[in-house]
């Protein structure tokens, strides 16, 4: 235990202390909306909720191409990409993202998805490297648990 930690003792919950501790590696997550639908309420909700869970969330807004998403993810050095789509084009656009990540040697970035996605499409998407799909009604806790477990698995590699 460091001097600073000892010295601060009971005040360890203060913001000052938290600020110092939080200098360590942060989990960074890109929330992106591929495709042409403009329904961004879900994406904004998840971005906000993940921010409140203590992650650094990069939000890029609606109508992103898979190329733009992957380029952004690499520049931002994110650990996760969360894709939100409600138009029905998920079977084309989600796998395109994982494909491009592979092409750029960035397949270590974990991809998950959400939106209006029929049950029967989920096995296909998983086979294309989408690690999890969260459909409407998913409690935010499930998403955080997923991120934490993936993070742990990555750290243990």
């Amino acid at each position: 235990m460091g001097y600073l930690e000892k010295f601060l003792g009971n005040t360890r919950k203060t913001l000052l202390y938290r600020g110092i501790r939080e200098m360590n590696k942060k989990v960074r997550i890109l929330i992106a909306k591929p495709g042409l639908d403009g329904h961004d309420r879900g994406a904004k909700y998840i971005a906000r909720a993940l921010k409140d869970a203590g992650y650094e969330v990069i939000y890029t807004g609606i109508r992103q191409t898979p190329e733009a998403i992957v380029k952004t993810a690499i520049q931002e050095d994110v650990d996760f990409i969360g894709l939100s789509l409600l138009s029905g084009a998920h079977n084309e656009l989600f796998p395109r993202v994982t494909e491009l990540l592979k092409k750029h040697g960035a397949e270590d970035i974990i991809v998950f998805g959400g939106g209006i996605i029929p049950e029967e499409d989920i096995p296909f998407l998983k086979s294309k490297g989408i690690k999890a799909i969260f459909t409407p009604g998913t409690p935010i806790r499930d998403v955080i648990d997923f991120i934490e477990s993936q993070k742990e698995a990555k750290n243990n590699e």
Binding site: R18, A47, R48, L50, K51, D52, A53, Y59, E76
Partner: peptide
């Protein structure tokens, strides 16, 4: 955020 350490960029 000074409360959670999270950020929305």
């Amino acid at each position: 955020s000074p409360f959670t350490g999270g950020a929305l960029l």
